[in-house]
Design a binder for these strands. Sequence first.
RNA 1: CGGGGCGUAGCGCAGACCGGUAGCGCGCACGGUUCGGGACCGUGAGGUCGGCGGUUCAAGUCCGCCCGCCCCGACCA
Length: 589
Amino acid sequence: MRVSALFSQTLYQAPSEADVISHQLLLRAGYIRQLGAGLFSFMPLGKRSMVKIEDIIRQGMDAIGGQEMEMPVVNPAEVWKRTNRWFEIGAEMARFKDRVGRDMVLAMTHEEVITDIALHEIRSYRQLPLMVYHIQTKFRDDPRPRAGLIRVREFRMKDSYTMDRSWEGLEKQYRAHYQAYFDIFRRCCVPCIAVKSDVGMMGGKMAHEFMYLTPIGEDTLLLCQQCGFSSNRQAACFVKEMPPAEAQLPLEEVFTPDCKTIAALAEFLRVPESKTAKAVFLIATISADNRDVEKFVLAILRGDMELNETKLVNAVKAKDLRPATEEEIRAHGIEPGYGSPIGAKDILVVVDDLIPQSPNLVGGANKPGFHCLNVNYGRDFGADIIVDIAAADEGCGCPQCGAPLHLSRGVEIGNIFQLGTRYSQAMGATFLDEDGQLKPIIMGSYGIGPGRLLACVAEEHHDERGLVMPISVAPYQVYMVPVPGKQMDTLAMAEKLYQDLKAVGVEVMLDDRDERPGVKFNDADLLGIPLRLVVGERALAEGGLELRRRDGKGGWLVPPDRAVELVREQIGRMLAEIEETVQPVDYSG
RNA sequence: CGGGGCGUAGCGCAGACCGGUAGCGCGCACGGUUCGGGACCGUGAGGUCGGCGGUUCAAGUCCGCCCGCCCCGACCA
């Protein structure tokens, strides 16, 4: 590639809307351009990196027996109605009507389509197991795109789907993906950990997310340094310390002015927050018989703990959950700020499983300015559901070893789900098993977002001069800078070398622009091309060309007649360094 | 959807409080001098000041509505 002809320029200053480093650098280096909120174009440089990332993914999927295919972005709503997700998913899914007036959707994932294909294709256990994948554009109308390529609305996504006759078969394919994902991310030089996650809208049994740890991450994780346990906060359980046993004391009303928060209440009564009960009021949308019903939910947990809304959503099987307004709270006979289930009407009470073990708590009296002392579960109030709904927090006990957990932030770069039979059952994708029984196909679903991965590469590999792209995903391998000389025709020399390198398959950029050397050096650094080759009189006088690694791990003076050979050797070495990191990992199921 | 910020030349910004001929730096075009880490001099092109409406003799500036982008929250790969 001649830099003079490259479609995209480097930017001296980053546009002001970019505030995370990967966004700024990808913009400045000319890899991407923004069209709208969460909508990005990939310029030639960015596209080349994306192709490389996608090829690494292909290689990883092919290695575990995947067959690449492609499914349509536009789906008839009908298939989504069959699994009920047409009704379950909200505004996030883009819908429209075609010219005849049929409901259509822009696919945000392809479980429905693959299951529809499977139900037509798969008849016998002899056709299983199967693993297929595709890399396709998807659209999710995210309410808040942010952080450049980290969170966008339109994005490419590798999805793979497994189909098995047994749960053991699914487990095997799940584990194969687990390893393949580590291999893929290591080839892209993005460090990551696997964490247990909530199954979310996918449904299913078991799920892991692959997380790149970074403070700009949007997911909150809990990690145990003792035993290696890790979990997304949405799914994290933890060891709850049992409060000491106490005899139940008689209920007593006390005047507690201006104590609308737990902190104020604990301060006023001089009791620890763990001796109080927190009441959280929410409106859950629950769908029953294809109709949405709004249900008023009262969640009760100890004052020292926070509500984990994901756990609550799962507990009440809600499609949506939002805080209740003051009017709604009053309508159910509850006094905001002094709320309690005592005397409340027509509500669903969900109690955290620690509450029944916690005697003599301070709770609301449902009367402005009053709380009750010695509130006890069972005696003073009951529950429709008792389940863990507390959010794990910094310092909570690890569910595996009891050591304190630590909070960390991460970006999800991949996920794997054991779907089970949710989709095959809903759509009737069955096969005839060896025993003559008709059984639903047991499925798994696995995703990786290459664009987000590119952002993480940039986030992880940069310095004050710009990107430092790993050679596995860099748009080009070598950046040549001819420095005009007085005696020698360095441009002609560079031109010859450029042709020679291209001829042996080296991906090389020749900066043939009429610019000062400083400008070229700065651009070479900003683009993050792994190797830089300078053709200039100064070094030539000392016998060679300057070959330098962008990552600072080496620089050499190479004789012109050996330049091609040494460049190739260095490329091979850099690729080998990356390949060395690809190692078997322990599966932490 | 709630809270906050912003929208003026390709990019970064000033001008707005206090209405009176739209500016600066970078970039771009042309000429010249330069040429190993974002050079310098000269000349020049480039703007429906996000949109619509209102107030006014006069609106980038004041008022109203709308649109877009960013950040925090809610939500999520």
